[in-house]
Design a protein around this nucleic acid. Structure first.
Lengths: 230, 230
DNA sequence: TAGTGGTCTAGACCACTCA
DNA sequence: GAGTGGTCTAGACCACTAT
């Protein structure tokens, strides 16, 4: 039998907080007292409380003590994965097809997003992703060739751009925006829905350091729902 | 000058990983070695590595050592706040109006979601939220009266249901779903858009323990974009 | 200025899992 | 079986901040 663990303390305190033992904003005992109460070292209590603070359950301040968070924030975590993984996780067969591929000077707004100089070319791709042979996602994408020129040699008919980029530039960061749009012509055609149908759209721009790598828009098939938990 | 901190080690290792010092899936030195290299206690290195693991940058296994995560997962965090806070954070004046309020037996699907017995009544509300006097969100909601009967005494014309619930049942958990819908009649009317316009919709059901508290749908004004970072 | 959390240490033992 | 991470301890000093 171990000594009491930080997770045990964490759970215990969480239960006590949820049960209303302390009201919103009320101060809970300090680390030294809790350590004594639970019969363990202060370090252990500290770790438990730190975890609760990360969860947003309590707020900690030096000298001010630890208090039940008076304004708990609920956060939903969305794991942004490669489409293939989404499809396969749902138990469907994945496939994709490159509808268009070209190298050209992108429109002004894309130039700005990718921070391209005026005449540089970028790689443009339109991809349709399938789940069990049904259109699932229509994607348009611009790739910054000055950052990842190797992509021109990649077998993009075998591995989706999406996935190639994730493997090549694994630790990029990015912006994401979710919205609802009335299906534009090209998306409607690819997804076989009427123009104007409401589609769930995801816009994403990713970068590495200060270099913008790629920007894309994905239109999900009609009726798609993005699920998460609080 | 402190001894080297866990955050410094964390940043150092993160930089080394991002710089490609180790390839995807490659093993990095073990804690004891890193402790020696950085001239600190193993505990300190441990904490830094634990943080990197939580971030999904590395994967740790006993005996197997610590490896650069071969399949890094990008997660977007969405903080689900009260509409008022969203509006005010954007620098607009918030207001809301209860369009409908009634107590009745909900339709079958809602009964199932809230786990209500066949003839129990629930509270139904339609609320319109404004940002600078423009319609921002149209919300329909059912509240389980057997869980929070006190709500019948709440001043729901002064504090939004949303907010009242957050204060009263602060630590509930829930499901969220995001989708795009062609505006239904009531939402279109409230938001002053044409029926059929693509609206961003959020469905949320929250519960406390095993009790379902409330379920709602929010339709955001046309063109709304939910933003996040990876 | 005093109280409380934040962090580091050195050492120990445990638990998992790879070979 | 042995190597590596997981965790706990007891003690110390520091840093922030409420009072």
């Amino acid at each position: 039998m171990r000594k009491i663990s930080h997770t045990a303390i964490r759970n215990s305190l969480q239960t006590r907080i949820l049960s209303g033992e302390w009201t919103l904003g009320e101060r809970i005992p300090d680390e030294a007292n809790l350590a004594e109460e639970y019969g363990c070292a202060r370090t252990t209590v500290n770790r438990a409380l730190r975890a609760l603070a990360e969860d947003g359950l309590v707020v900690r301040k030096r000298k001010g003590g630890t208090r039940v968070n008076p304004a708990p924030v609920r956060t939903a975590k969305l794991s942004i994965s490669v489409i293939r993984e989404q499809v396969e996780a749902a138990g469907h067969a994945y496939d994709f097809k490159v509808l268009k591929q070209s190298q050209s000077v992108p429109p002004k707004d894309i130039q700005d997003i990718l921070k391209l100089s005026e005449n540089s070319e970028a790689l443009y791709l339109e991809t349709l992703h399938f789940a069990d042979n049904d259109p699932f996602v229509f994607e348009t994408r611009w790739v910054n060739l000055s950052v990842v020129p190797e992509i021109l040699g990649a077998p993009l008919s075998e591995i989706s751009v999406n996935e190639w980029l994730v493997r090549t530039v694994p630790f990029s960061s990015g912006d994401v925006e979710f919205s609802a749009v009335n299906a534009p012509e090209n998306a409607a055609g690819a997804l076989s829905v009427l123009p104007g149908a409401a589609l769930f759209a995801v816009d994403r721009t990713t970068w590495l350091g200060k270099s913008r790598i790629t920007t894309m828009t994905q239109y999900y098939r009609q009726g798609y729902r993005l699920k998460s938990q609080l």
